[in-house]
Simulated scan of single mutants.
Amino acid sequence: MSITFVAMTPADAEDLIDFLSNNRFPFHVQAAPQAPDIRVRIEQGRFWNEDTQGYWVLQDAHRIGMAALEDLQEDDAPLFDLRLDEAQRGKGLGVEVLRALCGMVFRSMPNTRRFEGQTREDNIAMRKTFLRAGFLKEAHYRLAWPTNDGGHLASIAYSILRHDWETGTVTHFDWADLRV
């Protein structure tokens, strides 16, 4: 099974609207994006601009989702947003997709030191995906993720270091390094 990425362009706008509006993303801030809202985000440059690039995620040349890399100009630590088609979820593809995304980032962006992602505390599948793909939990932002019902949950941040990706290791740190 081969995972590849194809950069999105403005020519992909209608396909992107179709993909996002015809799938539910229960662990994202907008669980059920609507076409008019997506169109506005596209017109504002959300998926292709100097700082962000969207990609179609392909498995053996079939589109299975999309990923967006963010903070490309500001930082040597880009952040990603990954969304798989509902029909592709629960098949164990997340780890392979995330590993392939790491490969694309670290190979094509030589100045990238680390690669980051975040998810809600209740998105157990994604949290396990991060760990299985070699990422390490680095932050637990309490009540930082707004939910569709007006509440808030913790946002959990993970990253992988270039060195760890290259060597297949995970550099751990001491969470309780300071005591009072």
Rank of each mutant, 00 (worst) to 15 (best):
I17Q: 02
F130V: 02
I160W: 02
R24V: 13
G103C: 05
W175V: 11
R162Y: 08
N148K: 11
E96S: 09
C102N: 04
R46H: 14
S2A: 15
P110I: 11
F135P: 00
V180Y: 13
I42H: 01
T129W: 05
G92P: 01
E121Q: 14
S155R: 09
E70G: 01
L72A: 04
R127S: 07
S2G: 10
L143A: 15
G151W: 06
R99S: 10
R46V: 08
L93R: 14
F47A: 01
I38V: 10
L136I: 13
L143P: 03
G65A: 01
A35H: 05
L153R: 07
V29I: 15
P10F: 05
L82I: 12
N49I: 08
M8Q: 00
I64Y: 00
D12S: 04
A157G: 15
D60G: 01
G54R: 05
L58P: 00
A7K: 14
G92L: 09
F27I: 12
Q118T: 14
D81M: 13
Y141S: 07
N49R: 10
L84D: 01
A87I: 12
Q118D: 14
G168L: 07
L84Y: 04
A13L: 04
G45N: 10
Y55I: 04
T119D: 09
V105N: 02
R63K: 11
A154P: 08
H140P: 06
P78G: 00
R89C: 08
R132M: 08
Y141V: 04
A87C: 10
E116K: 11
T112Y: 01
T119F: 02
M104A: 09
R99P: 02
L58D: 05
A61L: 13
T147F: 05
M109F: 08
E50M: 14
H28W: 08
G65V: 01
H152M: 11
T167Y: 10
V180D: 15
D15A: 14
D76N: 14
Q73A: 15
A35L: 10
P36A: 07
D12K: 00
V105Q: 01
D164K: 02
T167E: 14
F130A: 00
F115T: 01
A133V: 07
L93C: 07
S21I: 10
R107W: 06
Q118Y: 11
M8F: 02
T112V: 15
D37H: 11
V40K: 13
W165A: 04
D51F: 09
L98D: 05
R83K: 13
R83T: 08
F173P: 03
E138T: 12
